[in-house]
Design a protein around this nucleic acid. Sequence first.
DNA 1: GCTCCCCTGTTGCTTAACCAACACCGGTGC
DNA 2: GCACCGGTGTTGGTTAAGCAACAGGGGAGC
Lengths: 190, 190
Amino acid sequence: MSPKPDASADLDPRVRRTRLLILEAFHALLEEKGFKALSVQDLAARSGINRATFYAHFADKYALLDHAVRTAFGAEIVKRGLDTHTDGPENVRSLILIVCEFLLALERRCAGPHPEFDALVEGALRQEIHALLMGWLAVRRPSAELPATVATWAIYGLATHYSHLKRRPALETFVAEAYPLVAAGLLPAR
Amino acid sequence: MSPKPDASADLDPRVRRTRLLILEAFHALLEEKGFKALSVQDLAARSGINRATFYAHFADKYALLDHAVRTAFGAEIVKRGLDTHTDGPENVRSLILIVCEFLLALERRCAGPHPEFDALVEGALRQEIHALLMGWLAVRRPSAELPATVATWAIYGLATHYSHLKRRPALETFVAEAYPLVAAGLLPAR
DNA sequence: GCTCCCCTGTTGCTTAACCAACACCGGTGC
DNA sequence: GCACCGGTGTTGGTTAAGCAACAGGGGAGC
């Protein structure tokens, strides 16, 4: 029924295993040496997977990063029970909160300025947010492209801002403050 | 050089993975439902491997238990840095201690009387102990069979006794007491 | 007796992972 | 310049894991 019915469910067990092992190795190496220094060879060695097998699953480490970000973000979405089909203020608030926490956690784990790394994460994450918003809006609006785009950038921008603050306010108060700014152009006045 | 140079080292990574997954599932299920109640299907489901693949590695769950016991025991041996080629009082003392701890841990984890389970464990463990002792004695004695056998049974018996005691003395004092009884027929007087 | 159910081993065929080897690129040293 | 080194993608042939289907055993219920 749903478009992505947990794609990893009816997959060949070998494929599931392999992807999982690669992802685990990726997370470990990301903390140890950072994205730039980490090589496909490292990933293969750490995960116990053949290098050729890696390439059967991902084009390169950049594609892996993309996949990892989307997967992790998607997992947060379902963990929070965020409804992916209907909009509503609560969904939007949750989304802002999730993005903030996501970037914050990333900040903590992979500290330091890594422009290319950040850019890749941003790209993947924005696409995911955008797709989510489009799913919400498409129900009622014939053309949701523009409001979705604006809200996407707004949310991502706010989250980056929050995660870079020296003295961060409590996340809930930040979200409460941010929500109306995002919702303004997103949800029809009610 | 050594007879078993860590056999899992130069093995096909797929085989290593599969065996590891089966062993992990086995340990988990052993605690959850016990050896008798656990089926090959359970093992396959829990470990994520195909049932047919299980049979490619082990004849049945009994063979798996045998393998698991030997593997775990062997791991203890190397962890304690027990020299497998030369004898000596310190080695013998360590061996007694290891067997006691091994049975004790098993007792704690898989409590309750399981005659067939216990018999299988005993068989595997005794063979391992015997092989170890033979390795030590063969260096000096042309025919070490009998003293090795006596010592094997003695050690196993002492360890079972210890693990079944209601009020157990400290392991070190027990070993100190047991050692001379075992060593009597094993090491040449010096 | 009977059927039903669950588990056991085993089979042939398919698919994914392994492996060694290759050509290639970018940097380093000299 | 050139040689070296370490990493990258890619290849074809080999091997292990997956899968569905089978016959058969043994116990529970009736």
